[in-house]
């Protein structure tokens, strides 16, 4: 029998997960896997570890592999450290036609990284390529944290990045 990993979850995380668990039937705790992953990811500076996923499985009483399945399926769950601000740039067709390549190139230069999923040296930023976020009318676009930034230009990007702590 392996050691319990429940202590890895903070009391605040557990309380928040409980709110989600309460929304589903008692024998369907698995339904809370997605919110639980988000909550725990936020708790851990934006990324998940195997131990944390195991802790979620233990907390929800489901097999660990079921948590791994969900956490690896959805792109918003991170499995490696990310920057304080995770910059998600859409490169799907609308954004691409509206110049996302240029946006990406500018971002790379600005935060000084060479490729996707890289974290800037100061740990403030990381860059991630994402699929369509449903804001084609404002292409090209990116998402930082919970905010959408649309109709991007290099100048606009500079301003946005400067405004962040």
């Amino acid at each position: 029998m392996s050691e319990s990993k429940l202590d890895l979850l903070t009391a605040a995380s557990k309380a928040e997960i409980d709110q989600w668990v309460a929304k589903y039937p008692a024998d369907k705790k698995q339904s809370a896997t997605m919110p639980a992953l988000r909550i725990v990811q936020d708790q851990n500076e934006g990324y998940l570890t195997q131990d944390l996923m195991d802790a979620i499985a233990e907390y929800l009483g489901i097999p660990a592999i079921s948590v791994y399945e969900v956490a690896t399926f959805y792109s918003m769950y991170e499995h490696k450290p990310v920057g304080k601000h995770k910059i998600c740039v859409c490169t799907n067709v609308s954004c691409m036609l509206r110049g996302s390549d240029e946006i990406v190139a500018h971002l790379k230069k600005k935060i000084n990284v060479n490729g996707w999923r890289e974290v800037s040296a100061d740990g403030r930023f990381s860059l991630k390529e994402v699929e369509c976020l449903g804001a084609c009318a404002g292409a090209p676009m990116m998402q930082i944290g919970r905010e959408y930034h649309e109709n991007l230009t290099p100048e606009k990007i500079d301003k946005i990045l400067e405004s962040l702590d």
Binding site: Q50, P63, A64, I65, Y68, E69, T72, F73, Y74
Partner: peptide
């Protein structure tokens, strides 16, 4: 009665395994 294998990843990257 014990889920040991699962499908991790998505699309082209989907794999059957134990993940760990």
């Amino acid at each position: 009665g014990i889920k040991e294998l699962g499908a991790t990843g998505r699309g082209e990257h989907m794999k059957i395994g134990t993940y760990v």
